[in-house]
Design a protein around this nucleic acid. Structure first.
Ligand SMILES: [Mn+2]
Ligand SMILES: [Mn+2]
Ligand SMILES: [Mn+2]
Ligand SMILES: [Mn+2]
Lengths: 217, 217
DNA sequence: ACTATTTTTTAGACTAACCTAAAAATATAC
DNA sequence: GTATATTTTTAGGTTAGTCTAAAAAATAGT
């Protein structure tokens, strides 16, 4: 049994560790949780006592396999609720993250299975992020931020970062949605801004934007 | 801004005061909240500081008009979520109360308006309880517990008490649902058990059951 | 290798929500 | 109207989660 706060810490650790593949440092977690390092140290002791992370003093924390599956369940709930809000209630994709941050903590296995069924077992959420199944299994497709690719790249938008509402509104305006074709036409060395083709439509974007567009090769 | 715990206390006060029409005593509230009188005294000081109740030492609390509208919003959310769970997700009516106790604390005015629209602006929840509208207005139809009526009474089931899952399963089995015709055929003085007609179907029920069936005249 | 800087942990304190035990106020009984 | 019983409040303490300031460990610079 994790408290709401513990669930939020665990989820942040899971994301910062890239799905459990590397250690997370105290300050990085403090930054992500908008709190102080001292509070983080307190919390990681608790999470470590509950065996969802391992903790080596001064060297950061690692997620255990128990921790991974608990984090994935919270992520599953978050993404299913986002899908519900967009597909069924008509929310825009920039309006759902904050509400899903609350809904992801509702504790009812039956509710989440019924919701999944009601939504038709969606594979990705409105931002293109994969939804873990009821066993916590998640299809990881390697996603590359657009700013790391060169002129001539051609592919499809897989997902976009979902926590900044203004970014999402802008991406929506230029038509940058998951599944849409994309091509890099030009790249400026000085500021890494780009000229791209989105669904056969020319757009100039800064690095601040290209960083948040994730594509598949 | 009320905390989750404060919302639960306020809702309990609202119900115990019959919608704000009488004072609520400390012990009654402690009983309802499954807590101790000392904890209640602490909490009512906080609620009183937030001006959702008035508090006179040793004489109980009363809900203010601000408190009433806040309580009604929580009740609105509770009943809309119950309706969602039954109508859209296929829950049975005895399975929804506990989940709605969690969902009623999700804070997003837009969510609740969209949900109301999605459900087609329902007037009552699955148990027959009226759903306050977005302004907190609620249609109060005087409801009488069946055990308070005499032989010969004839009318319609308005609502049933919703927090006991076993009661609801039983009521469902005998066909006692909101909207169904009901008639009292006989009543035993000794234990106040009854023979009734539910939708032209004869059933014997104890007082424990008839207390929880609410009818309109 | 030693000092300076950065990172992390510890120490001590605060608030919300809860508890038990004791004191105070109110209600009841004769 | 005084004594007893009941109800409510106060006093003091606990846990979860947070904070600031100080101490300790690790890292970097020369
Ligand atoms: Mn999100
Ligand atoms: Mn998302
Ligand atoms: Mn209910
Ligand atoms: Mn109900």
């Amino acid at each position: 049994m994790l408290s709401l706060t513990e669930e939020n810490y665990l989820k942040a650790i899971y994301h910062l560790s890239d799905g459990g593949s590397k250690a997370v440092l105290t300050n990085a977690l403090a930054e992500a949780m908008s709190t102080k390092a001292a509070s983080v140290t307190d919390m990681i002791k608790k999470l470590s006592a509950k065996e969802v992370i391992t903790y080596e003093k001064y060297y950061g924390v690692n997620v255990t396999s128990k921790g991974k599956s608990e984090a994935l369940m919270v992520i599953r709930k978050h993404r299913l609720w986002e899908t519900f809000l967009v597909d069924k209630l008509g929310f825009a994709w920039d309006e759902v993250h904050e509400v899903a941050e609350q809904l992801e903590h509702i504790n009812s296995p039956r509710l989440i299975e019924k919701l999944d069924e009601f939504l038709g077992y969606p594979k990705v959420d409105p931002h293109g992020d994969p939804i873990p199944d009821h066993k916590g299994k998640i299809k990881i497709v390697p996603q590359i931020p657009l700013d790391q690719l060169a002129i001539g790249y051609q592919g499809k938008i897989a997902a976009v970062k979902d926590s900044d509402s203004n970014l999402l509104k802008y991406l929506d305006k230029i038509g940058a949605r998951p599944g849409v074709k994309i091509k890099i036409l030009g790249k400026e060395d000085y500021d890494e801004s780009m000229e791209i083709l989105i669904d056969d439509h020319r757009v100039f974007i800064s690095k601040a934007v290209s960083q948040n567009i994730l594509v598949v090769g």
